[in-house]
């Protein structure tokens, strides 16, 4: 128990360090919120006219998808931040200290979660401006936001593994883009998965991003009354499925990330 408390305490010290960076380099938060704003506007006004979702307004459909995409992108900061810390020798310093092995990762993922909270607030305001509305109860809406953040938090542990392996923020950014674009686009984020061709449809149906998007849509009351019922179990029970994904991700990624951290040294 005391080891766990120590890990949380050390994690808080590291998280504080990362949060000071957000404060000292405000450009970071400005740009990480500008890009989702841009996405909302682009999709709402550029594609919105040509992507028809029979039964509902596209902007209402769109927002949950953009939320999901954005928090997944937000989780990549974890990997880039760790890669940068390795490159600069900061991880060497941390690893020579008598601190908990998991603390740097706990601190990193926690501060990146905070970053995602800020981004979600900004995006919600943008969404409300372009015509998105929440049609559910405040409690359900809160649950929707919480689920998005929880999902991103679990994904960021996976990003941590990659960041610790590649040890260079530039390489990490390129690598994560290649993985994240298909994951967030071959999904129900911007189109209904039922419109996708064969194999892409199957991929989208089982894609964790689809589950969290569908869950958020349910909880925000942005579901399409005319949409055909989902063909597969994950999208029939998106909230439960998202929680399952979160647990699986954490069970797999956390130990792997800590293992990778123990081996990580600067070049």
């Amino acid at each position: 128990m005391s080891a766990f408390v120590e890990a949380l305490g050390d994690g808080a010290v590291v998280a504080k360090r990362n949060l000071i960076k957000i404060k000292r380099v405000p450009d970071l938060i400005v740009f990480s919120t500008l890009s989702p704003i841009m996405f909302v506007l682009l999709f709402a006004y550029v594609f919105g006219g040509s992507i028809a979702i029979p039964g509902m307004d596209y902007r209402e459909f769109l927002m949950a998808g953009i939320f999901a995409q954005t928090v997944v992108f937000g989780s990549t900061i974890t990997g880039a931040g760790l890669a940068e810390d390795i490159q600069k020798g900061v991880i060497d310093r941390f690893r020579s200290l008598p601190m908990a092995r998991s603390a740097v990762l706990i601190g990193r993922t926690t501060s990146d979660l905070a970053n995602n909270v800020i981004v979600i607030v900004v995006m919600s305001v943008t969404g409300l401006i372009v015509g998105w509305r929440i049609h559910s109860s405040p409690l359900e809406a809160l649950a929707g936001f919480a689920l998005l953040l929880l999902f991103a938090y679990a994904v960021s542990w996976g990003m941590a593994i990659v960041g610790l392996m590649v040890r260079s923020p530039e390489v990490f950014n390129n690598a994560s883009f290649i993985a994240i674009f298909p994951l967030t686009f071959i999904a129900n984020t911007f189109v209904q998965e039922s419109t996708l061709p064969g194999p892409l449809k199957t991929f989208a149906e089982w894609n964790p991003v689809s589950a969290v998007t569908a869950a958020a849509r349910d909880l925000f009351g942005n579901t399409n009354p005319l949409a055909p019922p989902a063909d597969v179990w994950p999208l029939q029970h998106p909230v439960l499925m998202t929680l399952i994904w979160v647990v699986v991700f954490l069970l797999v990624f956390v130990p792997l990330a800590i293992r990778q951290y123990r081996k990580a040294v600067a070049r």
Binding site: R17, I20, K21, V25, V90, D92, S96, A266
Partner: peptide
């Protein structure tokens, strides 16, 4: 330990 590069946080 003080390593090859100054492992201090710039921010």
């Amino acid at each position: 330990l003080s390593g090859q590069y100054a492992a201090v946080d710039e921010n």
